[in-house]
Design a protein around this nucleic acid. Structure first.
Length: 574
DNA sequence: GCCGTTTTCGGCCCGACTGTTTTCAGTCG
């Protein structure tokens, strides 16, 4: 029997939790299996290196037994048994809003609902509304949810959310009665995708503010409207965005902001810690359990300090050891550390702005240097530069460069690694370019070995400074090519090739998870916007957020260095 | 199911909102 790998074990534990939930098991037992899955996921080691799973916090005798069985045999008798007991068509029903394990269990036992279609039938025959605990409205809602089921993506990309978030902020700014507001949730933590947007508002007049929110433009539906919480679905063309608004007093603002920034795992860990001190954290403050005294805070710094911690940036509040690390300062890279952008396009290839405009925009952003990197000749669809054009462009860049004593413009190129593994320009050309980027834009279907050969050849070329968007993924649209990232990182360290964190919110490539691994291995990262328009230079913020999610320090990121330092690094092997 | 210098039993993070109920269970984040 094939042994189960770590991912399969985590999935099995999560499946067990879901089945138990539908069975109506004790909810703490259910969450014990989820906690065990989380504990495994958080641990960096492989399943073989974790000799004794029960030694991990959250894994005891029971779940360790399940894990051991999966490791030994590749199967779990408990999971098998559950699968025999319950139809697996019930599992997707948990995704329907308003339906949880308890209700699904009841539907199964009382009405023999086993999947989406039997559930729809039961609703249509009006059998659901007569069940105790259900009613007419519940039945209607289930039917409506079934109608929408599968039509909408579960998570929305940051690229889609950025303009929506800005629009809502503008509207809140125009409303009466709001003292201050902030966007919280996974958006604030910088996740690649989000389920919804969470806004925290402070006000003395929740009814007045609530009324304005519930009547704002673009509302598709008001999901809920209570005294302090309003849930909406906003619609912009095809895009439907769930948005939650929470209203509190200004004193409560900071603890509410922290609570709804999450993550859930982070909150749970911090609350457990508070409990050990005889305190209780809620949205409204920290309660001294013996006296009932409620403490509120002026800032999140102050809040964390209360628990003996320094400020924990939202990006790392994932319950992955931040409470242990942030007993002292642990600075991560910051937007203010960025001194250049090393990947962008102009009208010479497929960009929308002239060289001068890009220079001006970079200077406005306070950078000290930059690189102009248009596409190479192979990429005809993007109007890649012929050798003649390239030489003329670099002449132009050098001329521009002479204008400034306080700013440096690198000549550059985003050169294609061709399907056969050769590079788009000869050594003779490359040796005169300041910043050579190599990247893959073709033959995505090739197998991993072939792709890795292409990368290897590029990275071993002494003139190639950086690999751009290493996986080629576009979030929510395509996975990219088959690349062995562990090996790529290894090669990057060996050849001193920089790996890119492409800050385009559709790409975020490398991801937070992989830049973290790259940093651990000693590789260097550049955060670049790959801007095709001056406005896209602002994506640097998103890139830095992603870097922070990967715990990147300033030193790891080459565009926090001075231009001389970077030049020395690039020219080391030339 | 997990956990424990108060505990090997009895807790487990906490609260808003809805729809079902006549005081609360279920869901959600």
């Amino acid at each position: 029997m094939k042994k189960a790998n770590k991912k399969e074990i985590i999935n099995a534990l999560e499946s067990i939790a879901v089945y138990l939930e539908i069975k109506g098991e004790n909810s703490f037992k259910v969450s014990a299996y989820r906690k065990a899955a989380n504990a495994l996921e958080r641990d960096e080691r492989t399943i073989d290196d974790i000799k004794d799973p029960a030694s991990l916090q959250g894994i005891g005798k029971g779940t360790a037994g399940v894990i051991d069985e999966l490791v030994q045999t590749g199967e779990s008798s408990l999971l098998k048994e559950l699968k025999n007991d319950l139809p697996d068509g019930l599992l997707p029903l948990l995704k329907l809003p308003g339906l949880g394990g308890k209700k699904i269990g009841k539907l199964y036992r009382e009405l023999e609902v086993v999947d989406v279609s039997t559930l729809r039938k039961a609703c249509e025959e009006k059998k659901v509304q007569v069940l105790p605990g259900f009613g007419e409205k519940t039945e209607e809602k289930i039917l409506a949810a079934l109608e929408e089921f599968g039509k909408r993506p579960e998570r929305l990309t940051i690229a889609q959310m950025i303009p929506v978030a800005e629009l809502i902020k503008d509207r809140l700014n125009e409303m009466d009665g709001i003292i201050r507001f902030q966007l919280a949730g996974s958006f604030r933590r910088g996740r690649e995708t989000v389920k919804d947007l969470d806004f925290i508002l402070s006000t003395k007049e929740p009814e007045i503010v609530g009324e304005q929110i519930a009547t704002m433009k673009n509302i598709k539906e008001v999901i809920g409207h209570g005294e302090t919480k309003i849930s909406l679905e906003l619609q912009f063309d095809d895009l439907i965005v769930p948005v939650d608004f929470r209203m509190v007093t200004d004193e409560e603002f900071i603890t509410t902001l922290h609570h709804f920034t999450g993550s859930k795992d982070h909150n749970v860990l911090l609350r457990q810690r508070a409990k050990e001190k005889g305190e209780k954290i809620s949205e409204y403050g920290v309660v001294q359990e013996d006296t009932g005294e409620v403490k509120t805070f002026q800032s999140e710094e102050e809040f964390f300090k209360h628990f003996g911690l320094t400020y924990i940036p939202p990006e790392v509040r994932e319950g992955r050891g931040e409470l242990e690390v942030y007993t002292e300062n642990h600075p991560l890279i910051d937007l203010g550390d960025i001194r250049s952008d090393l990947h962008m396009h102009t009208t010479w290839s497929d960009g929308g702005n002239a060289i001068e405009e890009m220079i001006e925009a970079c200077r406005e952003r306070g950078y000290e240097y930059m690189a102009i990197t248009d596409h190479s000749k192979f990429l005809r669809v993007a109007n890649g530069l012929t050798i003649d054009q390239l030489l003329r462009q670099h002449e132009e860049v050098r001329k521009q460069n002479e204008k400034f004593s306080d700013f440096t413009i690198f000549t550059g190129i985003e050169m294609d690694i061709l399907p056969d593994g050769t590079l788009d320009y000869e050594e003779e050309i490359l040796k005169n370019i300041d910043f050579v980027i190599a990247s893959i834009h073709s033959a995505f279907h090739q197998d991993e070995k072939t792709i890795m050969k292409r990368f290897k050849r590029a990275m071993e070329n002494p003139h190639v400074a950086m690999i751009a968007h290493p996986t080629g993924r576009v979030i929510g649209r395509r996975d990219g090519y088959s690349v062995d990232l562990d090996q790529l990182i290894e090669m990057a360290v060996e050849t001193d090739t920089i790996l890119e964190l492409n800050a385009n919110p559709n790409r975020l490539d490398l991801s937070a998870e992989w830049v973290e691994k790259a940093q651990a291995a000693g590789a260097k990262i550049a955060i670049n916007t790959d801007a095709h328009h001056v406005a896209w230079l602002n994506h640097m913020q998103v890139g830095v957020k992603t870097a922070r999610r990967g715990w990147l320090k300033k030193e790891t990121v080459v565009n926090t260095w001075s231009s001389d330092e970077l030049r020395r690094f690039i020219n080391k092997h030339r």
